[in-house]
């Protein structure tokens, strides 16, 4: 009996312990779900508020009418077109350069050389530089300073391209790295050079991943206001850009402008423009997700 005693004891105590444990376990899970819920609540509140305020003012006039001092007839046509122009410049610079850099780093750069590591580290760090600092750079070097383009579409496009370049590079590198080595070896074994292998095998196989990264980078660019404010794009622009050397405004700047105005009508307009901006972003993200699901290769 005395030998059995401890056993009986533990049998009796075990359920008690596990109750306490279950409580702490459950409490912890509740805390976690609350933290997660806070993020979701933030998202829902933001969307609800923006839509609730903005929907009455939302309509085709946003992209049909130019901004005006009267909120009742004001629109964001110049901002919509300015956004498209700047985005086109940004994409045509950041996409080829970013993919080129990623291809170099993944396929050609000698891994053991100091400069390769240096470049990779530098890109990591650039990704964390505040966007307003890019704005200062744009102000000092491109809008004024040595290049002196002024606050025009090209300047805005260049600044945003430099801003999102690290994102494009990092995403493209990951997509290229995900292409299995066996594909490269198969290609080399047929007498393809490294460049032929990259161009005809690796890049096509990495396109879905690269495209996803590019779209995410461009959606970052589309929402940026601070660096463009710095180069002097925060002005009244009641016309569409006509070329790379046109003055311009973009949706985020238009929203910022409207937020700062006292009239209730402009507050609503700002929310309506937020809806438009969110809709554009949502469409871009939907394309990214579709691309990822449609073309993702399982190896």
């Amino acid at each position: 009996m005395s030998l059995l005693a401890p056993d009986v004891d533990s049998v009796v105590r075990l359920p008690q312990q596990s109750v306490r444990r279950r409580v702490s376990d459950r409490a912890f899970l509740i805390v976690l779900v609350i933290s997660f819920g806070l993020a979701l609540a933030g998202l829902v509140a933001l969307l609800w508020y923006v839509f609730d305020t903005g929907l009455p003012a939302f309509g085709p006039r946003l992209w049909r009418r130019f901004p005006s001092l009267n909120p009742a007839i004001s629109g964001a046509r110049s901002a919509v077109f300015g956004t498209l122009w700047v985005l086109a410049v940004t994409a045509s610079l950041a996409v080829p350069i970013g993919i080129g850099a990623a291809v170099y780093l993944e396929e050609f750069a000698p891994a053991d050389k100091w400069y390769t590591r240096w470049i990779a580290l530098n890109i990591q760090n650039l990704a964390g530089v505040p966007s307003i600092v890019y704005g200062i750079f744009g102000l000092a070097f491109i809008a004024r300073g040595p290049i002196d383009l002024g606050p025009v579409v090209l300047t805005g496009g260049i600044i945003l391209a430099l801003l999102v370049l690290p994102i494009v590079i990092i995403a493209s590198r990951e997509a290229i790295r995900a292409v299995p080595e066996s594909i490269r070896h198969g290609s080399f074994a047929l007498g393809a050079t490294r460049l032929q292998t990259v161009r005809r095998q690796v890049l096509p196989a990495a396109v879905p991943g690269i495209a996803t990264g590019v779209i995410l980078a461009l959606s970052r660019a589309i929402g940026e206001a601070a660096p463009l404010i710095m180069i002097g794009a925060f002005t009244y622009v009641p016309f569409n850009p006509t070329g790379l050397d046109s003055k311009f405004t973009v949706l985020p700047i238009q929203i910022f402008d409207w937020i700062g105005r006292p009239q209730e009508g402009f507050t609503q307009l700002a929310a309506a423009a937020c809806i438009l901006l969110l809709a554009i972003l949502l469409a871009m993200n939907a394309i990214a997700i579709w691309l990822r699901n449609r073309y993702q290769q399982r190896w």
């Binding site: 080829p96 350069i97 970013g98 993919i99 080129g100 850099a101 291809v103 170099y104 780093l105 050609f108 750069a109 240096w118 470049i119 530098n122 890109i123 760090n125 650039l126 530089v129 600092v133 890019y134 200062i136 750079f137 102000l139 000092a140 070097f141 300073g145 430099l162 370049l165 690290p166 590079i169 460049l195």
Partner: peptide, 24 residues
Amino acid sequence: VVIGILFCCAALSVAVTVGIVLSL
């Protein structure tokens, strides 16, 4: 030539950092 161009793309990021520092 193509590899040289690709290298320039990668090196541009260093130029951006240098440019930021030089502008400041």
